[in-house]
Design a protein around this nucleic acid. Structure first.
Lengths: 241, 241
DNA sequence: TCAATACCTTATGTCGGACATAGCTGCAAG
DNA sequence: CTTGCAGCTATGTCCGACATAAGGTATTGA
C-alpha cells in the first residue's frame, strides 16, 4: 500500500480499507507503528486519523490491546462522512439500503409538507433550478448540463426541499442522506422515457410546495418515492456499477 | 482554570466553554500552547481534543491563523455528544428547542407507527418496564424507583419505542434525541395529577403498539406530543434554572 | 493440586521538543 | 500603485521517550 500524503489521505485510505471489507467488523487493525511504516506517516498523523474513526463510532481502541472495528450497528450513520464511505467503498450494502429507503419513505412526505409551509422565494428558486437542470440533461448529448449530471441535479432537488423546511435537523439530515440519495439515484438507470416521467413527478412536488398545499405535497412526495423504490427493486442486482 | 486529567476531561471543558458562551461563534480559541499551559496537558492531548471538536463541526482550524468557533448551523446536531453539550452547557437554547420540538412532532407519530409494525415481544417488555417505572415513581417519596427518576423512565420509554422500529436510522436518531428529550421532560415540572395523565398518554401509545394498530399509534403519539408541547410553552420562561 | 499474587509483554495514551507549512502583514523595489 | 520578497504567527507533521492498561505467564503459598 502506497504512502499517504497527509492526515486526510490516510483517513480516507483507512476508511476505505474498513468499508471495503479488508478489516471486517470485529477484526483488529494493525498496530499504530505498523500503520505508520505502511503509509509513510508519523505516529501523530496516524493517531489523528484513527481518532476521527473512533469519533464516528467505527473503531474502538483499548490501551494495551489494540484497535478493532466495531459492529456496524455502532457506526454513526448520521455522520455524512460515514454515509459517504458506506456508499463509496461498500458494494451492495443492501442491508442498509433497505433501512434507508424505509427511512426516506417515512420522512420525505413530512419534509415536503414542511417545505410547503416554510419555503421562501429563494428556496423555490433553488428547487426550480435543480428541476430545470434535470430536464435539460435529458436531451443533452452526454446527459450533462453546465458540468452537472442528471443525477446530481436530482440530488440537488431533494437537498433543496430539505433546506426549504428551514429546520436545522431536517437540513442536517439531508447532508447525511446526500450520499445515500446519490447512490440510490445512480442505481436506477432509466430510459429517456422514465427520466421524463421522473421529472414530471418532481415537478408535481415543486408545484405543491409553491402553492403551499400540504396534503398534495405529501401525496406527490409519496408517489415520487414509490417510483424510486420500484426502480430500485426492479434492476438492483443488475447494475452494480 | 484548573488542570485536566486527560483527553476526555479537556474535551469536556473546552466543549463546556464553547457552549456556555465563553467562546461565542466566530471568536478564536487560545493557541494550542496556551491551552496546554492553562489545562496542564501536552500538545498531543490538546490537539486530540481539538480534533474531536473539529470532527463535530464546532471548530475550524486554519494553519497559521488559529482555531475559531464555527456558526451553530454548522454544528453536527445529529451527533449525540453535540446535543449532550447543548443541553448541559447552553442555557435557554430556545432557538434549537423549537426546531427540535417541531422535529419530534413530525417524526414521532411515524416512529410509533413503525414500532407498531415491527415491535417484538422483547421490545414490548422494554417499553412496559419503562412505563411501569414512570407509574411507580409518582407515589415514591423522592420520585425515584430503583435508582431511576420519573424523567429517566420517561426518556427510556421513548428510547424503547425508537428501538422497536428495528431501523438503524431511527435507533441512532434516538441516541441523539436522548439528551433533548431529557431536557424537554425535565423542563415540564408537573403536578402529581399531570404526571398521572402523562402516564395514561404513554400507556395509550404502548397499547397501540402492542395491538399493532398503526393509525391509533399515530394518533396516540400525536396527543402525547401535544401535551409535551403544551407543557413546554406553559411554564418555559418561568424556570430556566 | 489449586489459587492468589507478582511479573512480564504488548499496544495504546501522554509527554516534550523540533522542524515544515500555510496564511497574514508590512516593507521595499519597480 | 502594484508587485514581490521577507518575516511573523499558529497550525501540521515528525521524532523519541516514558506512563498506563489489559492480558498472559510464572511463581509462591496454603
Amino acid at each position: 500500500m502506497a504512502g499517504a500524503q497527509n492526515r486526510d489521505d490516510l483517513l480516507e485510505k483507512l476508511a476505505g480499507a474498513i468499508f471495503d471489507g479488508t478489516y471486517p467488523p470485529g477484526s483488529f487493525l494493525p498496530r499504530e507503528i505498523d500503520i505508520c511504516s505502511t503509509h509513510q506517516v508519523s505516529r501523530s498523523t496516524a493517531r489523528s486519523a484513527l481518532q476521527t474513526l473512533v469519533d464516528t463510532g467505527i473503531l474502538v481502541r483499548i490501551s494495551g490491546q489494540g484497535t478493532r472495528v466495531r459492529a456496524p450497528s455502532e457506526w454513526q450513520l448520521l455522520d455524512p462522512r460515514v454515509t459517504h464511505w458506506l456508499t463509496h467503498y461498500t458494494e451492495a450494502s443492501a442491508f442498509y439500503m433497505d433501512d434507508l429507503l424505509r427511512f426516506r419513505e417515512s420522512v420525505e412526505p413530512f419534509v415536503t409538507m414542511e417545505a410547503a409551509t416554510h419555503a421562501t422565494a429563494e428556496d423555490l428558486v433553488a428547487i426550480e433550478r435543480a428541476l430545470g437542470g434535470m430536464a435539460a440533461t435529458i436531451d443533452a448529448p452526454d446527459h450533462h448540463c453546465q458540468g452537472a449530471s442528471h443525477d446530481e441535479y436530482d440530488v440537488a432537488f431533494h437537498e433543496a426541499v430539505y433546506a426549504a423546511t428551514h429546520n436545522v435537523i431536517w437540513t442536517q439530515l439531508s447532508h447525511m442522506l446526500k450520499p445515500i440519495i446519490h447512490a440510490q439515484v445512480a442505481r436506477t438507470r432509466r430510459s429517456v422515457e422514465a427520466m421524463r416521467e421522473s421529472v414530471g413527478c418532481h415537478r408535481r412536488v415543486m408545484e405543491a410546495i409553491r402553492r403551499q398545499e400540504r396534503s398534495e405535497a405529501c401525496e406527490a412526495a409519496r408517489e415520487l418515492l414509490s417510483h424510486t423504490a420500484e426502480d430500485l427493486r426492479d434492476g438492483p442486482g443488475a447494475s452494480l456499477e
